[in-house]
Design a protein around this nucleic acid. Structure first.
Lengths: 160, 160
DNA sequence: GCTGAAACACCTCAATC
DNA sequence: GATTGAGGTGTTTCAGC
């Protein structure tokens, strides 16, 4: 779908993206008014951004504590062999508590972000991770207090 | 605002939240139809969820690579003294490349997630972090390939 | 308290220039 | 990309449960 979605973005596209990051439910008329476009033109730009994969979706940001997910941790995976990224992605995505996964440099091979209801629940997730055939051992860093979190840097990278 | 926003959520609220996480631009009529409510009732529930802080906002999910942010890293901060969480939050949020920050257990005191345009840019961010008065040293883990990322676990914690 | 129904205003959307 | 027009949706108001 977004195979080689390196469709170049112009200044208007970037302003529209910034607006939609701030308010994912903004209407096309409001977007257009803010960037100097008519509503249909704004909709075409947004449709194109979604079509090319620049915008991958729209979501509600939820206070996880309200939902009862009060434990958060980073788990490093030390793997045996060199499990293919596709295998890693498949097997880790099958564990719903794993909300993010990346292969990384350093001692460990993979870094996960895990959300659990409490420490007891987190322990069970850890057991599932350790049970994966390619996992040799894990190293956990528990989150004490989340200071802040934001979708992405505000604007264009300075080196652009 | 969402000071003690532990307003209990019922089954309908949770279904609405799940829907809005999957599609943050879903219409009220569609939401209502999916959970067995009229459009006005659905809107009132969503407004209440936003008002209590359960939903903190709506955002577009952007493919950061398209925007030119192709370097991602986790940076551990080893701090001198015990900088107050509020000071940490303020000074770190002032650096736009820091997209997430938490105090954590383990050797380091703080774990950051950083986005940069390239390694050269990342180096400059690292210099800014090292220059913070309370930072003694840093430890960087570079992301090789992001395997996946999702907003949050699908449903209710099992221990709920 | 909550909901559903109706009314109006606004927006979305396809076609056209 | 702007304008137009028809259709649909968001939002409020009101009454009922």
């Amino acid at each position: 779908m977004s195979a080689d979605a390196r469709a170049r973005l112009d200044a208007l596209d970037e302003k529209i993206i910034a607006l939609l990051v701030r308010d994912g439910r903004a209407g096309y008329a409001a977007i257009g008014a803010r960037v100097g476009l008519s509503a249909p033109a704004a909709k075409r730009r947004v449709d194109r951004l979604v079509g090319t994969g620049a915008i991958t979706g729209f979501t509600a940001v939820i206070d996880q504590a309200v939902l009862g997910w009060s434990t958060e941790a980073y788990v490093e995976l030390y793997c045996s062999g060199q499990p293919a990224p596709s295998l890693l992605a498949r097997s880790l995505a099958a564990i719903p508590e794993v909300v993010s996964a990346s292969t990384v440099t350093g001692d460990a091979d993979t870094l996960l972000r895990v959300r659990a209801a409490d420490v007891r629940h987190f322990e069970r997730v850890l057991e599932r991770l350790t049970a994966l055939p390619y996992v040799e051992r894990t190293r956990t860093t528990l989150v004490l207090s989340p200071l802040f979190e934001r979708p992405a840097p505000a604007a264009e990278p300075p080196t652009g």
